[in-house]
Design a protein around this nucleic acid. Structure first.
Length: 111
DNA sequence: GGTTTGACCCTAA
DNA sequence: ATTAGGGCCAAAC
């Protein structure tokens, strides 16, 4: 899978493979594309998403299943709504949004 | 080319 | 259990 591409492209490619109604974690994406410790780099890649992208960035969350996004262009509220549109049950706790990883975590290689 | 930043993660106090 | 700190990787300054 596109291993010769840039880091960005690889991250996007993996995120695109996440099916609707499922979520993936940053470290999971990092593990697939490169190193398990490159979770921050994945965040960088998603942060720099180009306009007109077709990357379902809303399906990528942290390991605790919490949405800690602070990007103005992509409010947590928006992500929460998009996930719910896909059938993912998003819980609201103290202004933060949580997703049940045990239930919605994407498992492509580990099963 | 060293320093800073960032949508993170893990360990220790 | 909650909070604080350091570490990791890749890009922008």
């Amino acid at each position: 899978m596109a291993e010769g591409k840039n880091f960005y492209a690889r991250v996007y490619d993996v995120v695109k493979k996440v099916p609707a109604g499922r979520v993936a974690t940053y470290s999971q994406i990092a593990t697939i594309v490169s190193s398990p410790r490159a979770a921050r780099a994945v965040g960088w890649a998603l942060r720099a998403l180009p306009q007109g992208h077709d990357v379902p960035w809303q399906r990528v969350i942290n390991s605790r299943g919490m949405i800690s996004i602070q990007n103005l262009r992509a409010p947590k509220m928006l992500q929460m709504r998009m996930l719910r549109e896909e059938g993912v049950d998003v819980m609201t706790v103290d202004g933060n949004y949580f997703v049940d990883l045990e239930k919605y975590l994407w498992r492509s290689y580990s099963r």
